[in-house]
Write a protein that binds this DNA or RNA. Structure first.
Lengths: 146, 146
DNA sequence: TTTTAATGTAATTCTTGATGTTGCAGCAGA
DNA sequence: TCTGCTGCAACATCAAGAATTACATTAAAA
């Protein structure tokens, strides 16, 4: 099972917002055009990013802006804002293992710390990348195209 | 979005198979009893583990057995056998970003290596845990219960 | 050889979540 | 007031996970 595209869409949004901030007003319609999806999808994601305190969204007039310097917004911040994990756990268990079976009643005790370590390994790697990396990476790619 | 319970069910299966290998024949019905699910669910997972070469399943007579020493079967081996990832990628993109937009046509070039690094961080941590860790951990937990 | 107990697998249903779409109320600046 | 945009509810669609039933196939034991 893959992680939903909303996460990469959110990163796409941040990249666009920075790349075009001087030339266009960044609206949900504008972003939907670059990503090629529906503006309402964008607004839902913007709403999540706003709730997480990562951006401000100007109601009425339109336009979005990050609340912090781009090098302070990590991939993990975006991931956390976007991906709703039940109890914060990446891994799912089957519900109601058999308590009569010694394995069934101990399976959580046996696995929880190991699965958490695996999850943390991923989340910590996410903290090594920031939106500013996307901004500078985008600049390089644009320069190559000319 | 969470990783499906089939992964933790597979780990549960390995743990049970070892814990009861001397006292019971390990059938899909027996395992379904401990996990509290349907035998067909178990058989599908067993089928995946067999295809990956991690276990043998005795047709007709029933019973399963690992093909390797337990310390040589890592969580990653099980994960890889169980989780069908499109193109091997953990992260999803929205299809068809706008090629007219410089961000849209470069979003993959911009993100692919970073997302791969995050995925690898998780997968490498998975390689640090083996089925043998579950066997010994289960022994300790059982000892405590008495 | 027949019986028996398993596996292998197809077909179906149910549920949930991601995604897409329409419609409209609310807001703020021109 | 008019215009353009956000916020949000209400659906529709689709795919995947999970559960269940049914049945053919297999291999050992009786």
């Amino acid at each position: 099972m893959q992680i939903s595209s909303r996460f990469t869409v959110a990163l796409h949004i941040f990249t666009c917002a920075d790349a075009f901030k001087d030339d266009y007003k960044i609206t949900s319609d504008f972003l939907a055009g670059s990503i090629n999806t529906n503006p309402v999808i964008i607004r839902k994601i913007l709403s999540q990013l706003k709730k997480a305190g990562l951006i401000t969204v100007a109601r009425g007039t339109g336009g979005i802006a990050p609340t912090k310097p781009l090098e302070e917004i990590t991939f993990y911040d975006v991931y956390e804002a976007i991906e709703p994990l039940e109890n914060g756990d990446l891994f799912n268990f089957h519900t109601d293992p058999n308590p009569q079976c010694p394995v069934g009643r101990n399976i959580h005790a046996l696995l929880d710390d190991k699965l958490k370590a695996i999850q943390l390994a991923m989340e910590n790697e996410m903290k090594n990348y920031t939106i500013d990396d996307l901004r500078s990476g985008m600049q390089e790619l644009s320069a190559k195209e000319i």
